[in-house]
Simulated assay, not measured.
Amino acid sequence: MKNIKLFSIIGMLMLTQQVFSQKNVKSVTMNKTEEHYTFQLSDKVSRQKVSFKNRYGIILSGDLYLPKNAGSKKMSALAISGPFGAVKEQSSGLYANEMAQRGFAVIAFDPSYTGESSGETRSLASPEINTEDFSAAVDFLGIQKNIDRNKIGIIGICGFGGFALNAAAVDKRVKAVAVSTMYDMTRVMSKGYNDAVTLDQRTKILEQLGEQRWKDAESGSFAPGPVLNAEKLKGDEPQFVKEYHDYYKTERGFHERSLNSTGAWNATTPISFMNMPIMTYIKEISPRPILIIAGEKAHSRYFSEDAFKAAAQPKELVIVPGAVHTDLYDKLDKIPFDTLENFFKTNLK
């Protein structure tokens, strides 16, 4: 890393290698409504707003997708969240819409402290609480009269792929777990991309995060970190930064409640990620099955391959030819929905 500053670790959190100061970034002015989704709802699917509490008393906001031809038989169900910094009206909702067409009851939800979910302060992430969010979604699904609580799986996208694996390891009610274009957020924030952060750099980052805590305590508020994606790129950014921008800052994936589209995490958000390795117990998912999907050309591919190596059987790794990280957010010709359908229909029984 070229420059170890307080926000350099936030830069990894934002999934970029550059820090864009807020005063140099103009606000996005796309004209969107409160019911803005980045995809079309299938005419074979119904969608309704729901809410449920996690163990911390935070009220999570979700969209429940149901196949219109479900009949009276109890359904298998899925809970989906991600990417990290996104909302349910983006990628997780798209996945839910597709899987509901294939016969599943599916909830896509906003994580704690973000989107339409509650939690104070805002714009905060936590590996423990975001893992709990998945289990709270399982709670909700399991008490619905039209859902078979013994047939519940979860899907995590991007940074919520790591949380999904962690949730499956600790919550034995989860019968199968799939992750798509996953990140291990605790690893990337504590060690940097490709584990490049040295012990000395890590120590300095932690010291600076501690200093930021003093500043927040003195001001009585939590300072924001850098804006996640600049409104305009200079052109010399790494390719994967351009790919994030193409999704979050354009009509393709922009959403006004998404931190990745318009906002910033709290500056001290990385603290809880720095010494909590969420992949520690991945072997304990077994004998329940794991499906890991990654893009061939994704900068994040190594997270998926390392998770696959660490996991016990039964497990499956699918590498999507030619796909970059963000292709698996919304590219219907790239996301292997047939594979996801077969995986869950085979294992939720």
Rank of each mutant, 00 (worst) to 15 (best):
K32F: 10
K204P: 06
Q48C: 08
M99Q: 05
K32N: 09
D184R: 07
E251W: 13
S219G: 10
K44Y: 09
A217S: 10
I155G: 07
F39N: 01
D306S: 12
K145S: 15
S8K: 10
K215V: 13
T38H: 00
P321N: 06
L13K: 02
M14A: 13
L206F: 08
R149A: 15
T186N: 02
K345H: 13
A167E: 00
A70D: 04
T121D: 10
A79F: 09
D236L: 10
K315Y: 01
I129L: 14
L60F: 02
A168H: 02
R301D: 08
G192A: 06
H325W: 00
I271W: 07
A137M: 06
K151N: 14
E211C: 06
L165A: 00
N194D: 14
S135A: 10
D171G: 02
I278F: 00
T29C: 08
F273Y: 15
R187C: 10
G103I: 01
D200I: 11
A264Q: 10
K309Q: 13
E128Q: 12
L291N: 03
H255Y: 03
A167D: 01
N146E: 14
A267P: 00
V324F: 11
T114N: 12
N31P: 05
P111S: 14
P277V: 02
K331A: 15
K309F: 07
I271F: 05
I9R: 02
G225K: 00
Y193W: 15
L41D: 01
F273K: 06
K68P: 02
Y244E: 11
Y248G: 09
G103F: 01
G71H: 01
G225I: 00
T268V: 12
T250W: 03
T114C: 10
